[in-house]
Design a protein around this nucleic acid. Sequence first.
DNA 1: CACAATTTTCAGTAATTACTGAAATAACGT
DNA 2: ACGTTATTTCAGTAATTACTGAAAATTGTG
Lengths: 189, 189
Amino acid sequence: MKNLSPLVQNFVLHFGEMGSRWGINRTVGQIYALLYVSDRPLNADEITDALDFSRSNVSMGLKELESWRLVRLQHLPGDRREFFSAPEDVWMIFKTLAEERKKREVDPTLSMLRDAVITDVSDAGDKFAQQRMKAMHDLIELVSSWFTDVHKLDQDTLVQLMRLGAKVQKLLEFKGKLKIVAGGKKSAT
Amino acid sequence: MKNLSPLVQNFVLHFGEMGSRWGINRTVGQIYALLYVSDRPLNADEITDALDFSRSNVSMGLKELESWRLVRLQHLPGDRREFFSAPEDVWMIFKTLAEERKKREVDPTLSMLRDAVITDVSDAGDKFAQQRMKAMHDLIELVSSWFTDVHKLDQDTLVQLMRLGAKVQKLLEFKGKLKIVAGGKKSAT
DNA sequence: CACAATTTTCAGTAATTACTGAAATAACGT
DNA sequence: ACGTTATTTCAGTAATTACTGAAAATTGTG
């Protein structure tokens, strides 16, 4: 790791370690971290140079980051090389990450569960297993469609909701009461 | 994989694959899946038998699942062996998982970022990097403290909130208006 | 189109992580 | 305390995943 300040080096190394706890490997994590804190787009050689692993590894790492939509490729005028940068908006990054993980991990599971619960089974053990799968399916579906829904909200609303935290309960209770008063027959569900 | 119905076998295999995308390895994923759909606690030998890998591997896998608080150990009267089961409440499972991941992945990152942003730096590049780290820190802190907060809500409230989805925006707008009317000086933040 | 610069691919190898079997330890009943 | 049964540990090995260097492919330029 050449030419990296201790501050950046530390950040990069941490992301390397963390990366390997997720599906992403160490070098990919480091490349992303480097791009994230860089004040300008970097080309593959600069990354190779800064992080000290092979040029081909950087190439593969960048490909992987592109598949996660976490880096943007751009060309600088009068320069033939490809430059990479990490989008600046942290909320956008968060959303992208959530979307990709959902696509790769949640959706396949959901579809497996959906198939499983509509299978005809006679065995008592299978019946029980199916109930359990249904419970899991319903939870995942609820949470993940909530996620998709909430993605549509603009950033300010999202921040407002987060800041509200557990106090959202009061708001929901209040909403319940409103419904009773307004609708008469509707209960506070 | 002996004595497993196709339904269960499929579920178990899927969890094995998925497990390896997370930090958890294939066998641990399979053990959990098996316990999750089982209608009674199982002992280590039964698991070994059903999944066809070594007794010692099962032992290690169970230890790992215990460290994630995803399985419960219990003793059956008149039986010396240890029996394991997966807690039934899916919301509880989800919360446990979120808590553990937060503890293992988010908290260390947060603490690294906190240290990084309070470091004194003079270099312009470092100053920029620090800004970026601050943005990341603030987002993670917001989301993760929201998580902690929301954990305290009872299940029904949580489900209600999720069902509301993007409509929560209306509620927040309404809340804003209320504040203006009631407080006079308070703005709808 | 030929050449130079850049990026990608991929077979081979290194490093890491997962798994096993045997031995050690622990838990219990007599 | 002894023997039996259950569980854990751990060194060795297998399997997987990550990384490299050299060669191939691609891209742009005169």
